[in-house]
């Protein structure tokens, strides 16, 4: 086992444990602001995972878009709905139990599939920064979805403004 592999393994397990704990805290936190902050931690963990997965552009975008923009938006929404922050934010007992059962079932079946399936793994995993090739792909092969995505964002923005606008 190479030194980098050990390093990667250590980082992976540490960050993964953090993410899972943070995710669980986020889901269980009573206070919405805390919940949002726990999510920030999880999403940052995702960014680290992207680095481990050689997706340097996505890692940066993750920080910018999620940890930066979306979470701010979330926090704003939480702030703009005062007196909702501290309300008991969990559903009734029955709902939570069935939610847990469902999640466990999905988890079980997914893990079963993922581990039992024989993945067509490539000999040499993708390595090195991928940003450049990603940029070329987006401007060539995926240019149409790319443009549609920009349209979607514009529409989403306008929609959000229209919906949230005060009469």
């Amino acid at each position: 086992m190479a030194a980098t592999d050990v390093f990667v393994a250590i980082v992976f397990y540490l960050v993964a444990a953090t993410m899972i704990l943070a995710g669980a805290s986020m889901v269980l936190a009573r206070n919405m602001v805390r919940s949002a902050l726990w999510l920030v931690l999880t999403l940052a963990g995702v960014a680290v995972m992207y680095v481990l997965l050689s997706a340097d552009f996505l890692a940066v975008a993750q920080i910018l878009v999620y940890v930066g923009a979306i979470m701010i938006l979330m926090l704003f929404a939480i702030m703009l709905t005062p007196n909702q922050v501290d309300l008991p934010s969990a559903a009734p007992q029955a709902q939570r139990i069935s939610a847990a059962l469902t999640a466990l079932a999905v988890f079980g079946i997914s893990v079963f599939v993922m581990l039992s399936h024989r993945w067509n793994v490539r000999a040499v995993p993708l390595d090195a920064p991928s940003s450049e090739r990603l940029g070329v792909l987006l401007m060539s092969t995926y240019v149409l979805p790319f443009e549609i995505a920009s349209l979607l964002l514009t529409a989403g923005m306008i929609g959000a403004i229209v919906i949230a606008r005060e009469e």
């Binding site: 069935s98 469902t102 999640a103 079932a105 999905v106 079946i109 079963f112």
Partner: peptide, 17 residues
């Protein structure tokens, strides 16, 4: 939402297991 995911789980269990 629970019904959606519960259904997903049930169908998956049916199809895979």
């Amino acid at each position: 939402a629970l019904a959606v995911f519960g259904g997903l789980a049930l169908i998956s269990i049916w199809a895979i297991v």
